[in-house]
Structure formats: structure tokens, C-alpha cells
Design a protein around this nucleic acid. Structure first.
Length: 600
DNA sequence: GCTACGAGCGCC
DNA sequence: AAAGGGCGCTCGTAGC
């Protein structure tokens, strides 16, 4: 029997998931699960206080439960509700589901967005009203009038009904391998990472000092106000920069001319950066879980299929997918994350960090059938040099050594031009990715040359563009089949005043051929990582190691030091063996290193 | 007082 | 429009 279970819980500014993460939210003294809605496949429905005598826990014992954001409801049930039911004697034996499923993960897999309202909209065609929940902030049911209580119960029931409907209708479309990946994600999240909280404390002191110093040197307030900045520029008799974005061409020119006369800009950046890092540090602190055996750990959230391409998305307050790299004010932020400790075992651990090398260009050239390029990569040439040999007429020796400028251009072309980028944007991309300063003419010429010499890629854009056109204004979705069997969905494709748009991940967004090619490429690279995670899992388990984190094309593993000599080869082997849906000679490359702390 | 949204910026 | 893309979080501002 499928049964949907949805808890309503108290929240306010300081006691919320956003603020504390799921684990410490449920532990908070103010936390209360005041309502649960239960809907069974046979039509049975119940809503009310989960601790009340009438709550039908024994009825749904051993059912298959389904929730939207299962890891949240699990935490509430196992850590707050069930212990109370047991200690009050209301339950004589432990109640639990036979299995617990998640419709947020299912909806993500189906490219429908991960929120219940988007999923309901896209998958059931039923919009939802979330306003009642927003009005519940800081309130518990005793604050409510009987009418308001009734309204809330109805709202909670609708959530559970929609959740059940989505599961019943779409669960068959969710393959076993993807379900394992989703479960695995949840376990990685819950396991968390070890954090060097002492070092973090030192960092916070330095960051507070930097922020304060910067704030004092900025003559306006609030310090990040662009309006105030423009006002101050006007007073100084100089034009205001259109943007303060670092590395933007426009801003660099402005800074060159006026930077000396107007030094506050540098402090604006310093304020922004130190403030941001300080906020992250504080959020990491609030998520701390102390364990005598495992040390101080921080659970986090990598959302399975958080992006419509299927990529995981960092979430939950501390985003492990955008941790700052490198040094700021003497602080290397990534180094706060350290290998697992286990004080009950003597084994010390070390990180192994493994990255796929340029996986997206490799995938793109495979998808469009660019054999010449892939053959050269298989022969051992680097991706950029292979591109230069295949399409830029390079016949010499090592491109990087003999023609560094051409190498940079090849790199910019490979990274920037595969998805339809035009000349103006290419100038920005080439600057950011390869440190190239191109004139508009040079950029235009490069873009044209690239397209001329890469017909396989441009015709791939064309096919996707034609597929879109075929479904425009027909109501029929464009479903792109990926080699893994997974699909990408472009629903409700419409001509609008903004160009062609489609319902992508629950939102209307602009769409065109090159974009779909980019999405597919990203999606296939994601599937490679997914397969790698699953094939790594038993390999690591045998060595007492485990994945603690993954970032799109990078896997961070904590491994007992005495296993390191075997580990590197085995990991590389598992990661570079192509999934069965790719050619067995597909050239996957992995860069692998050991590190005493998270880095790069 | 609140929410919604864009700018800015971090990552791959 | 042959248009690089995918994310999340903080802050400031606009609008209610």
C-alpha cells in the first residue's frame, strides 16, 4: 500500500531549515511537528496532531511511504515524532515504513522542478497555492482560529494528495539505477563532512576584522548600495561604473581611469567578499553536529536532480558546490573541510580528490560524431591540442610549449564555442577562460572559423533547432533521449515576444538549438558521474573509504591512509571505465591527487 | 512590515 | 537570435 505522509512544522527566523539545516532544525528546542497529513492509496485520509491518540500510525505501519522531500519528513519522524510516541507509551512497537520514497527526487528526475508546486503544475496540471504556509511563520496551531485551523488542515491534505498522485502516476518511469543514486545522495548528505571548527573560528575573527575595516573605509551606507556608490561618484565629479563586476571589461576600463581617484571600489569588493565568507562560516557553525566518535561534522545538501539537466545542486544554506577556491585575506576556505576522523579506530584518513578532465567537450564531440577529434584524444593528445590539430591546422609539436597563444585560443574555442555563443559573448568568455583579449573583429573571425571547421557540432545545433521548431505551439513536448536512457524534457514550447520559450524544470525559459546541445552535454556528463559514484561505492567500501562530496565532475573521497597505495589505481579504474551505454573506448580522463584537506 | 527580484559573485 | 549553460546565497531596492 502506498501512503503519503507530510509533516507541518513550526518555524521562525532562528528556528528553520534554512537557518539550521534539517538536522539541527529538528533538534531545536522550539521545534514542533504539529500536524501530519496522511493519504493512502485506498482512499483513507487523515490530518491532525501526529502525537494525538487518533493518529493512525499502526494502520500505515509497513506501508510504502512517500513524501515530498523525504529526508525532511524522515528526520521529523525518526528524530522527533516516533521517540515521543514510544516514550509516552502510545506506540507499543516501532512503526516504520516498508520503504520511504521521495516525490521531490522523482519530479527532479522527470525535469519538472523539485518543489511540490512546480511538480504539481507540470506533472499533474494542477497549480498550488502556497500562501497559507507562508502565513504560518512563527505560529503554532493554538494561535489559530478554528477557521484558520481548518484552512491549514485542508492545505496540508492537498499537499499529501498531490504527493501521492505524483508517485502513483510517475513512479514506474523512475529506473532502479536512478533510485539507488537518489538514496545514495541522501546518505552522503546525512553523513556530511568533517570540519576543522577551530580553524574556522580563527577565520571568522580575520573575516570580521576585514569586513569592519572595509566598512570603515567606505564613505556611504549601506556599503553595497550601487545607488549610493553612484551618488559618491557624482560628488567626486567622475562617472559611475555601470557595473562593479570583477573582470568585466567595462569595469576594468573604469578602474584604470578612475581607480586611483576613487579607491573605495576596492573596499566594496573586500566588504562583499569578507561578508560572504563570514556568512558561510556562520552557517557552517550552525550546522555543526558534535560526535565523540566522529568529531565535529557538518551535514549538507546536494540535491539529486536539482538542475533540470539532472546535475546535483548544492542547497540547504551551505552550498558545497560553490565553496570559494584559493586564498582571501590569508584564508583558504576549502581547507576547513577535512578528512573523516574516527576516534574509535586508530586509522587516520586522507582525501583523494578525483576530477574528470574536460569531460564536456569530450562528450559533445562524441554526441555529434566528431571522430577525428576523439581519435586524437584517444591517441593521447590533450583536448585543446586535439581540437587545434583537428580544426585549426596545427601540425607542429606540443601546442602548449610551441605556440602558447594558439593554445589559449584553442582552449577558448573548445570551452566557449560549442553551444552557439556569438562574437560579443565570446570576447567575455575568452577573457575569463583563457585570459585572451580579443578585438571584436578577431572574435567574429574566430567564431566564424570555428563554425566552418566544426560542421558536426553546428549541424547538431541545427537538428535540435529543427526538433524544437517542429513542436513549437503544438503542446507536444520535445523529449530528448540520452544515451543512458534518461530523458530531457522541453514542455509547452511556445513562440513568445521574448523568442521561443519552453517549460524547463518547472519554469518558462528561453530555448534554442545550441542550448539543448549544451543541456544534453551537461546531462551526459552528469550520467557519467552518476554511474561512477555507483561503481565506486563497493570499491571504496572494501577499503573502508567513502565518497564525502561530489561537484559535477569531481569526487572527494575520504580514505584510510594505509589504503592509499591501492586506492588511487582502483578509483581511477572505476571512474575511467565508460558506462555500458558509451563506446568502450570512449576516452575518459581523470586527474587524481591526495590531500590532507579539501583544496583547489 | 513583508515579499519579489535583480545585481553580484561563488563554483563547475 | 547559429543567442554558452547549470546552479544557490546575500544584499539592496522596489513595490505592496
Amino acid at each position: 500500500m502506498i501512503t503519503s505522509v507530510d509533516f507541518e512544522t513550526y518555524y521562525d527566523d532562528e528556528c528553520s531549515v534554512t537557518e539550521l539545516g534539517v538536522r539541527n532544525y529538528v533538534k531545536h528546542p522550539k521545534f514542533t511537528a504539529y500536524m501530519v497529513s496522511i493519504v493512502r492509496e485506498d482512499g483513507f485520509k487523515w490530518v491532525g496532531d501526529p502525537l494525538s491518540l487518533g493518529c493512525p500510525w499502526e494502520l500505515i505501519n509497513n506501508d510504502e511511504w512517500v513524501s515530498h522531500n523525504k529526508s525532511f519528513d524522515e528526520e521529523v519522524f525518526y528524530e522527533w515524532v516516533r521517540p515521543r510516541l514510544m516514550s509516552s507509551g502510545q506506540l507499543k512497537k516501532l512503526v516504520h515504513p516498508y520503504k520511504w520514497h521521495c516525490t521531490s527526487q522523482l519530479a527532479g528526475y522527470l525535469g519538472a522542478g523539485t518543489s511540490l508546486s512546480k511538480a504539481s503544475n507540470v506533472l499533474l496540471g494542477l497549480p498550488m497555492d502556497k500562501s497559507i504556509r507562508d502565513r504560518m511563520k512563527g505560529k503554532i496551531p493554538t494561535d489559530l482560529s478554528p477557521e484558520a485551523m481548518k484552512e491549514l488542515e485542508q492545505y496540508a491534505m492537498v499537499d499529501a494528495e498531490r504527493c501521492l498522485a505524483i508517485w502513483v502516476r510517475y513512479a514506474p518511469e523512475w529506473p532502479e539505477l536512478e533510485r539507488r543514486l537518489a538514496d545514495y545522495s541522501d546518505s552522503i548528505n546525512r553523513q556530511g563532512v568533517c570540519v576543522d571548527y577551530e580553524r574556522l573560528e580563527q577565520a571568522k575573527i580575520a573575516l570580521r576584522a576585514a569586513r569592519q575595516e572595509a566598512e570603515a573605509l567606505i564613505p556611504w551606507s549601506p556599503p553595497l548600495s550601487l545607488k549610493k556608490l553612484a551618488g559618491a561618484c557624482a560628488e567626486a565629479g567622475i562617472p559611475a561604473p555601470g557595473s562593479t563586476r570583477e573582470n568585466s571589461e567595462e569595469f576594468d576600463q573604469w578602474e584604470e581611469r578612475y581607480g586611483e581617484r576613487f579607491p573605495h571600489i576596492e573596499q566594496v569588493r573586500r566588504f562583499r567578499k569578507s561578508n560572504r565568507l563570514l556568512r558561510i562560516a556562520e552557517a557552517m557553525e550552525r550546522r555543526k553536529i558534535h560526535s565523540a566518535v566522529e568529531g565535529d561534522k557538518m551535514p549538507f545538501e546536494l540535491k539529486y536532480c536539482g538542475a533540470h539537466t539532472g546535475r546535483w545542486a548544492g542547497a540547504g544554506g551551505v552550498n558545497m558546490h560553490n565553496q570559494p577556491r584559493g586564498d582571501f585575506e590569508g584564508i583558504d576556505f576549502r581547507s576547513m573541510v577535512i578528512p573523516d576522523v574516527n576516534y574509535s579506530k586508530a586509522a587516520r584518513e586522507e582525501f583523494i580528490i578525483a576530477d574528470y578532465s574536460q569531460i564536456e567537450p569530450r562528450v559533445l564531440n562524441h554526441l555529434c560524431g566528431n571522430k577525428a577529434f576523439l581519435d586524437m584524444v584517444r591517441e593521447g593528445y590533450g583536448v585543446y591540442e586535439a581540437h587545434a590539430r583537428a580544426t585549426m591546422g596545427w601540425k607542429g609539436g606540443s601546442l602548449k610549449d610551441e605556440a602558447p597563444k594558439l593554445y589559449a585560443l584553442a582552449k577558448a574555442r573548445v570551452l566557449g564555442l560549442g553551444y552557439g555563443c556569438g562574437a560579443a559573448k565570446f570576447r567575455v568568455v575568452a577573457r575569463a577562460m583563457a585570459g585572451l583579449d580579443l578585438s571584436m573583429d578577431e572574435a567574429t573571425r574566430t567564431v566564424m572559423e570555428f563554425r566552418d571547421s566544426n560542421p558536426a557540432i553546428t549541424s547538431y545545433w541545427g537538428r535540435m533547432s529543427a526538433a524544437l521548431e517542429q513542436r513549437r505551439n503544438t503542446g507536444k513536448p520535445l523529449i530528448v533521449n540520452l544515451p543512458s536512457g534518461r530523458k530531457l524534457y522541453y514542455r509547452d514550447i511556445k513562440q513568445t515576444s521574448q523568442g521561443v520559450q519552453a517549460l524547463i524544470g518547472g519554469e518558462m525559459r528561453k530555448v534554442y538549438g545550441g542550448l539543448i546541445v549544451e543541456n544534453v552535454t551537461q546531462a551526459v556528463a552528469r550520467d557519467v558521474l552518476g554511474e561512477a559514484l555507483l561503481s565506486l561505492s563497493p570499491v571504496l567500501f572494501h577499503m573502508g573509504a567513502r565518497v564525502v562530496l561530489h561537484v559535477h565532475d569531481e569526487v572527494v573521497i575520504s580514505c584510510p591512509k594505509y589504503q592509499l597505495p591501492h586506492a588511487l589505481d582502483r578509483i581511477k579504474q572505476a571512474m575511467t571505465t565508460p558506462p555500458e551505454w558509451l563506446p568502450s573506448d570512449f576516452p575518459l580522463g581523470v586527474e587524481i591527487k591526495t590531500a590532507p584537506r579539501y583544496m583547489k
